[in-house]
């Protein structure tokens, strides 16, 4: 499986992809610096709402993971190399697992880095106590989000050649609109799972007062279901699909 993992990492090394990943990773620094530089110092609530929820969880996390995860199968479908992996005696999960690991091991460090740097800059700049804990909470919560999105988007990359476009629609329509404004659908939102974990890890600074966030129990159950369901769907898809 290590061979497939290393192969998948190598295939993610396109120049444009790396540039896009680094650019998206750096995006939260912009609002963090603006927040600090503004005449009105932001409160923890402002940063929770604007930086964590508005930028990191709503945009950077899903887009970064989308760019990292859809190509792990999508690239191989496009350049017709997937057959090199499927026409082997490996059980299908032994192909899926290292590919997911490759996507996640790209997305998780980047989202964690993005969260840690931007939260530290914003919280320290705003002279809010506990910036370190806030950064750690944000990094862990978003990293778990990257794990979930990574599994979803890897499946999407195997399911359709338009994974990037469909993924963006999902991010903005489902997560951005329905997952925010329709109460019941919050339980089906990866962003909500991440926010719930962040608030559980640092309830002092992220008290959830800016908007309703689902409880940690529901988030844990939801995250488990998403992870297992999409991993299984990916294995099943790999078994049943026509490989180009």
């Amino acid at each position: 499986m290590i061979a497939i993992y290393l192969l998948s990492l190598r295939q993610l090394q396109g120049r444009w992809r790396i540039a896009a990943l680094l650019a998206v990773t750096a995006v939260p620094l912009v609002p963090a610096i603006f927040a600090v530089a503004s005449s009105d110092r932001p409160t923890a609530l402002d940063l929770d709402d604007g930086l964590i929820n508005g930028v990191l969880a709503s945009a950077v996390l899903p887009i970064l993971t989308l760019v990292a995860a859809t190509p792990v199968f999508g690239n191989e479908l496009e350049d017709k190399t997937l057959g090199n992996l499927t026409m082997t005696p490996l059980k299908r999960w032994r192909i899926v697992a290292p590919k997911l690991a490759a996507a996640i091991s790209v997305a998780v460090p980047l989202i964690a880095l993005s969260a840690v740097v931007s939260v530290l800059v914003a919280f320290q700049g705003a002279e809010i106590d506990g910036a370190g804990r806030a950064a750690a909470a944000a990094a862990i919560g978003l990293a778990i989000g990257a794990l979930l999105y990574g599994t979803m988007f890897a499946w999407l990359g195997l399911f359709t050649s338009r994974a990037l476009g469909i993924g963006l629609l999902y991010v903005f329509i489902w997560e951005g609109l329905f997952g925010t404004f329709v109460d019941g659908l919050k339980y089906l939102s990866v962003r909500q799972y991440s926010l719930s974990i962040i608030r559980q890890l640092d309830p002092t600074r992220f008290d959830g007062s800016s908007q309703t966030v689902i409880g940690i129990e529901a988030a844990a159950v939801g995250a488990g279901i998403v992870l297992v369901a999409f991993a299984l769907l990916t294995v099943r898809r790999l078994r049943s699909m026509d490989v180009p």
Binding site: K80, T81, G83, N84, M87, T88, P89, R92
Partner: peptide
Amino acid sequence: PDLYRRIGVMVEHEG
């Protein structure tokens, strides 16, 4: 898939 131990395949347009 275990049968692939006994099968070698070279497809036409494989990358």
